[in-house]
Amino acid sequence: MGRLTTHVLDTAKGLPGSDIKVELYRVEGEQTQLLNTVYTNSDGRTDAPILADEDYVTGKYQLVFHTASYFHKQGIRLLEPAFLDDVVIRFGLVAEEDHYHVPLLISPYSYSTYRGS
Rank of each mutant, 00 (worst) to 15 (best):
G116S: 15
D98V: 02
Y39L: 13
L104Q: 09
E30M: 10
L24C: 07
L24S: 03
P108Q: 12
G14N: 07
F71V: 06
L84S: 11
T113C: 15
V27G: 06
Y25L: 04
L104Y: 05
V64S: 03
M1D: 04
T67I: 15
A12G: 06
Q31T: 05
F83E: 13
L84A: 08
L105E: 14
Y111G: 06
T46W: 01
V22K: 02
V8H: 00
P81R: 10
N41G: 08
G116E: 13
M1T: 08
P108R: 05
H101R: 14
S69I: 11
S18G: 12
T11P: 00
L51A: 04
V27H: 00
A95S: 08
E23N: 04
G29P: 05
E28F: 02
P49T: 10
F71H: 09
V102G: 09
L104M: 11
T5A: 05
H101V: 13
I20P: 01
G92S: 15
A52V: 10
L84Q: 14
V88I: 15
Y109R: 11
Y111F: 14
A82Y: 01
T67F: 01
V102M: 04
K13I: 00
Q62S: 11
Y39M: 14
Y109P: 00
D19S: 12
S69C: 06
P81S: 15
R77W: 01
T37M: 07
L79W: 08
Q62K: 15
G14P: 01
V102T: 09
D85P: 00
Q62M: 15
L93H: 06
T32H: 01
H7P: 02
L79V: 12
Y109D: 14
T6Q: 00
E23I: 01
Y100C: 04
L34Q: 06
F91P: 12
L78E: 00
D85H: 03
D43V: 04
